[in-house]
Design a protein around this nucleic acid. Structure first.
Lengths: 221, 221, 221, 221
DNA sequence: TATGAATGAGTCTTCATTCAT
DNA sequence: TATGAATGAAGACTCATTCAT
């Protein structure tokens, strides 16, 4: 699950450092789960250690502090699946509408509906207290993600499918529902009142439809 | 309450009494600042009291608990807006498209662009750890907010302006951009990379446009 | 209820002091109730004041501190009914067994089963923290009370009804069940398990019987 | 648990480990002292910790809460005695009168005359404010204690030594003098007036004698 | 005399962090 | 490297007491 397998094996990292990176894998894994579940301050390092099967003291052997652990968790879990996606879009054959539809629904499958969305939630929740992490996330996730969306929109405009638009602002129109889904799932999902239940797949279908056709009666889908 | 007739009319309210009336407001104001800046659990009641210029004990004279204080902040800054809104919508004369446009832009003016939006961010960030707050927010903010949006959509469908739709799901389509704006402002705003700058007013205009007409070239606004 | 009526009216107390003594009657009354119900430290002065219908500040006008209030409560409520009793015993005509029986059951009626027993409970509970009060109680209540019991026992021994005994120790044998009843009523009564329910009247009857005849089979009542 | 074979046999247990085992006992001992001296609510956990030579936090390593600590003190000092007593009574050979005599005097030796009796006083003094403690005490001390007394009485009735009686009420007749002794010792003992000195051993002897034979002249011992 | 707003020391409990073993 | 006992600072909340009015 963790990106450890993606690190090039030939990297000439000093042995001790590499061990240090390999060993705390379980710690990072446990920490991710707990940070996502409880947030930063409500997560107790002892629980992280326990879930990783080591003692509290051991955790501090690998991470100087709880903050340090938090940063490592975010770094470790960011920016792993963009390459795959890029490749898919490079060879995408259908219309740009299909491409947008595909982008959003596969985002849900690969990110929104997996533990990865927890990282986004985590970062957004704690960004104020960890500006470096926010900047890091901006660079590693938001920037490439936005670039991908921009590419789709640009393709559609170029092909005459989409109307001309300010691409950089339009990106946010596409991103908004994803942010919404993530926050809903991780924040209010547990205590949803009757009228507020969100069905993500239906929501995305409807969202794409609205993005392409609007709510107006005249624009028949 | 005090024997005003015996005191000189130039200074009708004794200091103590005036303070007593002013206290809750001052505390609420200080609390809003700090809750928005640091989140719920990281905000110390003593700091709120200090910022309001009183001692820790005094705060508990006016609010039973930290949670109680928070609820009062929510009521003061968000829940109190709904009656005004309701009244405006009751007499709204224009099209439903105008109504939707108005709803989103006045939301931005009254909530999104004020300190109050920080409260929503806070709730989403910490809802997991404070179920009672989450439930309270559901009841006092989300429910009436959703009801208002639903009303607009229903009106548009009834008048034939909007196509028929699953109203309860469509609500979320409208809510999503607001959540996005809030999270952007309070979470990632501080460290916006070049390509990610969001202009809220432009974003909302575009969002309404897309909601009404979609991105497709055929549905010209 | 309070001993205010027993103070000689001719007493040349300075007027202001007398008002001070008369006014806080309601305070003392409320305090007695609450101290008995909750003990010293769990009783809040604000609650005492509220029950007496005055403000917290007013209470401190009459009593320097909570401790001061406590001492006044105990002093005010001690040693009020001994004179009546003494008179009754002076003219008692029956056997000494009857006299003992009468003493215990009338004790239950006049003390044990009234609010007065709460004072005893109170004093015993807090004696460690208020040695002066313990000494005071010793002198004003225990001493005269013991004297009365001693008198009964002595009468019985003299008449040949009771066997000879160490009177000063025998006193405690008679006192013990009264202490027990008080502590039971005020301490464990509320949460009595099935097997531990005490019926005071039955208990006293049985106790007198045992005092007079023992548990042995041979000593038929 | 530690690799004892690698350490010199002269010092088989490392300091830390030895402390770990000793801690609870030291804390319990300190707690007993302070609880008896000051009562439950007036005892500060920090003071208990300090007296045991550890920090406040350490106490909470061994006991979940102040109440938990108190319960442990009760178990250690009172409840633990019951099995021994049970065993003794199981093999007791003498008369039931002897058994009763033995019960009361050994109670004095093991409880009444030790610090443990302070616990009973404390419970009676503070039961109202700590219902959970009262219930716990009922269950762990009063119930088994009463059962033991009941057993003795029942044995005596069965053997024809004692007259038939309502056993459940008779229990209280036996308990009363113990409660009296405890309250005397811990509440009024410090300031005993001349006529009120209680000699516990003599008191118990006399009490047993009265229980068995009454005060009447006819029932000669 | 009476009020009640304000104070701030005091108390339990949590938890990141250290360090002897 | 690994442990886990020990620490102590921190934080919400209470309540006796004060004092301006």
């Amino acid at each position: 699950m963790v990106a450890a397998s993606t690190t090039p094996p030939a990297e000439p990292t000093p042995k001790r450092a590499r061990r240090k990176e390999a060993r705390p894998g379980e710690l990072l894994d446990a920490a991710l789960d707990l940070f996502v579940e409880k947030g930063f301050s409500a997560t107790r390092v002892e629980e992280v250690a326990a879930r990783a099967g080591v003692s509290k003291g051991t955790l501090f052997l690998y991470f100087q502090s709880k903050e340090d652990l938090f940063k490592a968790v975010v770094r470790e879990n960011i920016a792993n699946q963009f390459p795959t996606w890029q490749a898919e879009f490079n060879t995408f054959a259908g219309t740009s509408a299909d491409m947008l539809r595909y982008a959003l629904s596969s985002w849900w499958e690969r990110i929104g509906n997996t533990r990865a969305s927890g990282i986004t939630k985590l970062v957004m929740s704690e960004a104020q207290n960890f500006p470096e992490i926010a900047a890091f996330y901006q660079e590693e996730v938001i920037k490439p993600g936005n670039a991908m969306i921009r590419r789709i929109l640009k393709r559609g405009v170029a092909s005459g499918e989409f109307r001309t638009m300010d691409l950089d602002q339009a990106i946010h129109i596409v991103v908004a529902p994803m942010i919404f889904l993530i926050m809903w799932k991780h924040a209010m999902g547990a205590c949803a009142a009757s009228a507020s239940i969100v069905d993500p797949e239906q929501f995305i279908r409807m969202q794409v439809d609205v993005l392409l056709n609007g709510l107006n009666a005249k624009s028949t889908p």
